[in-house]
Amino acid sequence: MSHMRQMDAMMAVDHTVQKAARKITNRRVIYEYIDLSHLTNVPEEIEPVSFNALLKEYSRKVRDGACVEPSCPAPQSTTLEENLRSVLSTMSERNLRDLDILMRRFPEPPTGKRTMFVTATSSNHFYESQALIRNLHRNVFPLINNYTFVLYDLGLTASERKQANLHKADILVWMDASVRFSNNIIKPLLDDAERRGMVLASGTNSVGQHTLQVTMNYMKEDVCTLAPVLEHEATFIMFHNKQWVREAVVKPWAVCAVSDKCMCPRDPEYDTYCNVHIHKYKKCHRYDQTAINIILAKLFRDHTSSFLSLYYDYVSLLRGDTYRYFDELEEWQAVPAGRRP
């Protein structure tokens, strides 16, 4: 299995599992574990990676250190090996098996591309996603070569699906529908992602305040270890296709999505809203954003700021910005080639 296929499949696992794991009971959404063992006859397993090889590459990226909150006991110092084992130990054999089964269900993507741009949409974000695609067509794609674009369907209607042309990389760029790029910024951003391994959006809130206790237990962390961790946003992430990114960040993140005790441990209706104006731990939950922040904190302690790009200031989040771009493209294609502007 190619490394990019692993990354692409892992990014989709969260949406696939959460959509599959829901059942409606008296108009309430209940999340439960789904047994995937009946799919084990699908051929081709994930290639194993040795711990020592992963530790060697991860060690090149980080130097040890920690920050603390005054009200909490001083944290004990840990080695890089202990940090890495702490992340990998969150993945149970059952969840790893389920992830392996799910990843084998995804077709092999085209190869040879430097960059893969990935987003997802549903009916309630359909026009917001069209505005993102319009922005990519104007400010990103004309400036680069050797790229591909993937749009995951998370719940489009039949008519919407006909409009969306679902088309796959050394760098994977995840974008929420609200992401917008300034012109002429994509090249330095891609180069920066290669240097850093990942590029994240900065954050200001405490992960300890935005994480449920059940997820803390799964990640083997507590309020004191997560209180000083700043919550980087998961609306825009760039991943360089390196072993430590695949195996120590994306894979535990995807396994967390498979587990019923990690990314979405209960009905999101009760936990989505976070009042940032009150200081209270475990008051809400940020799902995929919570999980990846804890994984990075376990690996890099107070050095997660090394993933903040200077070029990110030229990437905006415009929630609610919509555009009927597919209608515009259809009207343009209806004009005879010789008469198009």
Score class of each variant (00 low, 15 high):
33 Y>P: 05
28 R>M: 11
58 Y>L: 05
66 A>F: 13
129 S>D: 07
109 P>M: 10
59 S>T: 06
135 N>G: 06
33 Y>W: 04
129 S>F: 09
76 Q>I: 07
114 R>L: 15
117 F>K: 00
38 H>S: 14
65 G>D: 10
67 C>Q: 15
40 T>A: 15
57 E>Y: 02
134 R>F: 11
110 P>C: 12
114 R>Y: 11
101 I>R: 00
44 E>V: 14
48 P>D: 06
71 S>K: 15
69 E>W: 09
34 I>G: 05
83 N>E: 09
59 S>A: 08
141 F>W: 01
61 K>Q: 04
80 L>E: 08
126 F>C: 14
38 H>P: 05
123 S>M: 02
40 T>S: 15
117 F>D: 00
65 G>E: 03
66 A>E: 10
97 R>E: 08
113 K>P: 06
50 S>F: 10
42 V>Q: 06
40 T>F: 11
111 T>C: 13
139 N>K: 01
124 N>T: 13
31 Y>Q: 03
133 I>N: 00
32 E>W: 01
134 R>I: 03
133 I>W: 02
87 V>C: 02
80 L>D: 05
33 Y>Q: 14
134 R>C: 10
83 N>Y: 08
76 Q>H: 11
52 N>G: 05
32 E>M: 01
46 I>A: 11
73 P>G: 14
71 S>W: 09
99 L>I: 15
60 R>N: 05
43 P>W: 02
34 I>S: 06
60 R>K: 07
44 E>A: 08
51 F>Q: 13
132 L>C: 04
43 P>C: 03
62 V>P: 00
34 I>Q: 12
86 S>E: 04
117 F>C: 00
110 P>F: 13
114 R>S: 11
28 R>C: 04
70 P>C: 14
115 T>V: 08
110 P>H: 08
129 S>W: 06
28 R>Y: 08
113 K>D: 12
40 T>P: 01
143 L>E: 11
69 E>S: 13
128 E>S: 12
73 P>D: 14
66 A>I: 03
106 F>R: 15
105 R>Q: 15
117 F>G: 00
126 F>A: 13
63 R>N: 14
35 D>S: 10
61 K>T: 08
96 L>T: 11
115 T>G: 00
126 F>V: 09
63 R>H: 09
83 N>T: 07
38 H>C: 05
98 D>W: 01
79 T>K: 14
90 T>P: 02
29 V>T: 11
61 K>S: 03
49 V>P: 01
68 V>Y: 14
116 M>W: 12
29 V>A: 11
32 E>L: 01
135 N>C: 12
129 S>K: 07
116 M>Q: 09
52 N>K: 14
60 R>Q: 09
133 I>G: 00
50 S>I: 08
93 E>F: 03
36 L>K: 02
75 P>S: 00
